[in-house]
Amino acid sequence: MVEYLLMKIFRALVTVTLIVSAAFVVLRLSGDPAIIILGPEAPPEAFEAFRRNWGLDQPIWVQYLKYFAAVFQGDLGVSMRDGRSALEVVSERIPLTLAITLPALFLKLCIGLPAGVTAALYRNSWVDRLIMMLSVAGFTVPSFVLGLVLAMVFAVWLGWLPSGGSDTWAHAVLPTVTMGLVGAAVIARFTRSAMLEVLGQPYIRTASAKGLLWRDVVRTHALPNAAIPTLTIIGFLVGSLVAGAVVVESVFSWPGVGRLLVNAVANRDLAVVQVILLLVGLTMVGANLAVDILYGMVDPRLRIKRLKAGS
């Protein structure tokens, strides 16, 4: 088990390194930060100074190695845009993002899980069909479209809520609801199929045959077993708490990490982009790992299987 987890962590770190490297190369090759940040009209001396200052005059592989050397010493670089530590720039945005993603996650689970379970329990009934219709709509409509529609209705027509910004809690409502609805659709669908799979298992029939009432069969035999595969998707959602809001933040001009990322990419503000990617990578990996450990704890079959697969 320990062996297996170490392997998993190692692989995840390799993945994060690859992402960061790829971003480095793409951003460096796709535009000169000096021009973008100083503007094309700046005097040539300013360019030169800027480049020397940020080490941009060195060959790209030297920059790359230097960057990694620095990262391993805990130095994540400085934002080219406002000269502050990139970590600081990113950190101050995290609470803002969490302010909408955490409630959204709550919403996703509170709507998605019961909806999926209900649909499965009343399979093929009108309830099931309604839930599935909404769910399909929920994840075929892109979140920016849903966001715009919600903004249209509640901000422009009804005027109940602001359409953009972050001044009051009211500003957080629309982005949260947008994300929550889309995520709930995904969870509902996933939960339904996990639940149907479990309900079709012979041990469910055994549970009924031994005299449990249907609601107890569902409570003690179906729900816990269906929760196991659902963990994966919940893990994924937790992993995307930081990064999952790029689109919605842009639509509602919410100044979170997502919007920072968009701006940093546009400005070729490399250090900031890298910090965000690292952060995203690490939360994903962390969530994944947590799911794995949980899996092992709740599913006795896996403890054995893992051991075999771990070799």
Binding site: V2, R303, I304, L307, K308, G310, S311
Partner: peptide, 11 residues
């Protein structure tokens, strides 16, 4: 094959 035994299993 790897059989489960102890922490790491055994070959």
């Amino acid at each position: 094959v790897h059989v489960p035994q102890g922490l790491f299993g055994r070959k």
